[in-house]
Design a protein around this nucleic acid. Structure first.
Ligand SMILES: [Zn+2]
Ligand SMILES: [Zn+2]
Ligand SMILES: [Zn+2]
Ligand SMILES: [Zn+2]
Lengths: 138, 138
DNA sequence: TATGCTATTAATAACCATTATCAATAAGGA
DNA sequence: TCCTTATTGATAATGGTTATTAATAGCATA
């Protein structure tokens, strides 16, 4: 009925520490590469399993964004994200009054709406530069 | 260099017609089921291939969220979407002044932001009802 | 209408992120 | 220290999507 007791294993600790000091919103396999530096025998399944546990207990945020792979974030204060259309890199965007949306109480088909997410899209500096040099040559 | 000429095949036409008269934001395989009624020998690969072509030529919108199946929409006028947290059903939410976000010109790390997407989350009428009857019994 | 080029197809295999399985291990309360 | 069971590493399985390939069919041109 209620969820099992959560133990603090060495793997879980190292995963959480690494995610907390990475601000790149890494994918599971990027985090796997980082954690393996410290725990060479850790398995990718353990990364996925722990990200799931930590997400469900609210210690980590899973970014439900467009794109192929899921990304994770240990920064829990409310903020938005931008994603680069070319390379998929994700960065933070602070919340402002201009990026705040009023929740519609109910959609026309009777949905009860209780949350929303804003996702920005654009180009990171590197891809923007590359795009410029590709199109500038006549 | 430039994309090849787009031909109008029977399959492509039927796919587009069916998507245009479905307002349920179907997944590829849901659309596959619908199209097979008319073209029994169509293949799932053809559905995916055409949805990709039609998306890239702007005749169809692809709604992608990580972790869940992509959904497609032939309604091209600007609007938002709500997704049911339980069953994944997607419905339209009209754009209003309250759901309009001002684009930040640039993020702090130099991203050039040129678009955004608002996605609402909640419960569809069916799942909301089910949730009520599950939790109401003492 | 016939011809040629090639975009598109059906069928199928491959891909790849994520989950499930399972015997062995270890966290942590008693 | 002992016991329960959450967690692990290894590995197989899943499932949505993409790639491959020989055959077919749009469609521009003669
Ligand atoms: Zn980029
Ligand atoms: Zn973030
Ligand atoms: Zn629902
Ligand atoms: Zn829609």
């Amino acid at each position: 009925m209620n969820s099992p007791v959560q133990r603090m294993t060495r793997q879980r600790m190292v995963i959480l520490e690494h995610l907390r000091q990475m601000h790149s919103h890494p994918t599971a396999d990027e985090l796997y590469d980082a954690v393996r530096q410290e725990l060479p025998s850790v398995s990718l399944g353990t990364i996925y399993r722990n990200l799931d546990v930590l997400t469900r207990s609210g210690q980590v945020h899973k970014l439900e964004m467009c794109g192929v792979q899921a990304r994770f974030d240990a920064e829990l204060s409310p903020h938005h994200h931008v994603r680069c259309r070319d390379c998929g890199r994700v960065d933070d965007v602070p919340m402002t009054a201009e990026s705040t949306v009023t929740l519609p109480v109910e959609s026309k088909s009777g949905f009860q709406i209780d949350d929303y997410r804003v996702e920005f899209e654009g180009h990171c500096p590197e891809c923007a530069a590359q795009h410029r040099e590709t199109t500038s040559v006549g």
